[in-house]
């Protein structure tokens, strides 16, 4: 440890070990934000006995979302939501010409399916382990909203390549929305921005896909994770609770 500096004496910067520089930066931030207790509360919490790999499906879904967010941000640097042909051309440019474009677009495209699969596996784990029961009902409800929002991402993202498959799948999807009684026709008009697939339908889907829904998903993931940390996670249902021996002394069994 360096000797504390005396008044009037210059600090010996040369002896400052590089490894401590990182710690110093972290300490500087933590002294001003007090973030570390919160991070410790989030990461170093007690978990029940008997947990297994199925408990990692939620984190896996989170990382699938982060991968979609990162690749989506960079795809947006090349994509043009232009229904008169520019959208298809920009996707063609990304896929065929841009350096690593096919790779980044591939990650986004296949990652979308991976995220949906992981969400359903995560949901099945929570359902079959009974982890949605009291006091975790709100966590489950937020999770269901996240599932719906992810499906909205899938629906709106499907149009963006603007090839024949994207166009007709969106026509069919919007018309399925339209079959809802009373509100359906107006919901369809809202999605298309008019009575027919029009000039602003594509940009509307693009805005929903890359601004509106990702923001909502991010906020709700925060709430979901807060509740997971606050309430703790459940033990697998096949494990019976073992009471403390000193409690058993006074029981009648």
């Amino acid at each position: 440890m360096p000797r504390p500096k005396r008044p009037g004496e210059a600090q010996d910067v040369g002896a400052f070990p590089p490894a401590e520089a990182g710690i110093t930066v972290v300490d500087w931030i933590d002294e001003r934000t007090s973030l570390s207790p919160g991070i410790r509360w989030m990461l170093f919490r007690k978990v029940p006995k008997g947990i297994n790999w199925a408990y990692t499906l939620g984190s896996a879904t989170l990382f699938a979302f982060l991968a979609q967010a990162v690749t989506g941000v960079f795809l947006a640097m090349y994509y043009r939501p232009d229904a008169a042909g520019g959208a298809y051309e920009s996707i063609r440019y990304i896929t065929d010409d841009a350096f690593l474009g096919q790779f980044v677009r591939g990650m986004h495209k296949w990652g979308a399916s991976v995220m949906i699969i992981l969400i359903f596996l995560h949901m099945a784990r929570v359902f079959f382990y009974g982890a949605y029961k009291y006091p975790r009902e709100l966590t489950w409800i937020i999770g269901v909203v996240l599932l719906i929002l992810t499906l909205v991402m899938g629906f709106t993202g499907y149009l963006l390549p603007f090839d024949q498959r994207a166009y007709w799948a969106t026509i069919v999807g919007v018309n399925i929305n339209g079959t809802g009684p009373f509100v359906g026709p107006f919901l369809s008009d809202f999605l298309r921005a008019g009575p027919e697939f029009g000039a602003t339908t594509l940009s509307r889907f693009y805005a929903i896909h890359m601004l509106l829904v990702p923001g909502a998903i991010g906020a709700l993931i925060g709430a979901h994770l807060y509740l997971v940390s606050k309430l703790g996670i459940t033990a697998p249902p096949w494990l019976k609770a073992e009471p403390e021996p000193e409690l058993l002394e006074h029981s009648e069994v």
């Binding site: 018309n175 399925i176 339209g178 079959t179 009373f182 359906g184 026709p185 008009d189 008019g194 009575p195």
Partner: peptide
């Protein structure tokens, strides 16, 4: 007036799927 596909117009259908303002 023009309806979207999937919306029946026989019987009660014409009331379940009203005309839109945009057409």
């Amino acid at each position: 007036s023009p309806r979207d596909p999937g919306e029946p117009l026989d019987g009660v259908g014409q009331y379940l799927y009203p005309a839109r303002f945009s057409t």
